[in-house]
Amino acid sequence: MKGSERKFVGLKEIIIVVLFSVLTFIVSMVTALPFAASVHLQLYAGYSLMAIISGPIYVLMISKAPKVGTQVLFFAVKGLYMLIMGQVLTGIIFIVGGFICELIVMNDGYHSVIRSGAAYMLHMTLYGLGSFFPVLFLGDTFRAQLLSRGYDAEAVETMVSLYSSPVIILTVVLCLCVASALGMFIGSRMMKKHFVPGGAV
C-alpha cells in the first residue's frame, strides 16, 4: 500500500477518527458536570477544561489519520449526536464547521502546528458555542420552548440575555482559543513522552 499512498480517509482512518471523536465527546460531557452549578463556571472553566483535555486526543488522532476527511468526520460524529438529539441547527453548523476545518489543513496542513492547531481551535470554539446557537439563531423559538416547559418568564429572559451577550460570547471564545492552544501544547508533549515511545503512532 506504500506505493499508492491515499490522500483521503480509508476505513482504518474512519475507525480511528470516529473512536477519538467519541472520546472527545465523552470528555466534553464529563468536564461539564463538575461546573453544572453555575452557568458562568460551566461556560469558562468547563469549556476550557474540555479543550485542554481534548488536545492530546486530537494530536494523537491527527498523527494517526492525517488524511483529507479527518476534520469533517471529527465534527460529523458530534453533528450526528446533535441530530439524534433533535438539535438540527447545531448539527448542521458542526458539519459546515468540519468542512472549514478541512480547508484549513488542506495541502499537508497536518504537518504544520499552526494550521492543525488553528483547525483544532476552530473546532473547539464552534463546539463550545454550540450551546449559544439556539439562542443566537432561534431566539424566539428557544424562549417559547422554555416558557412552555414551565419556566418563569424572568428566568428565561435572564438565560437568553446571558447566552446572547457579546461580552460573554467573546470571553468564551477567548477562553476556548487559549485552552485549545494549551491543549495542543500538552498533546505535543504527551506525544513525545508517551505515545511515540509507546508505539501508538
Binding site: F20, K64, A200
Partner: peptide, 21 residues
C-alpha cells in the same frame, strides 16, 4: 487516566481496522 485511555483506544482502532480489512 488519559494516557492509558488513549493507548487503549489506539489499540482498539488498530484491531478494529484489521478486523474490518
Amino acid at each position: 487516566i488519559l494516557v492509558p485511555m488513549l493507548m487503549r483506544t489506539s489499540k482498539v482502532a488498530d484491531e478494529l481496522a484489521a478486523s474490518v480489512s
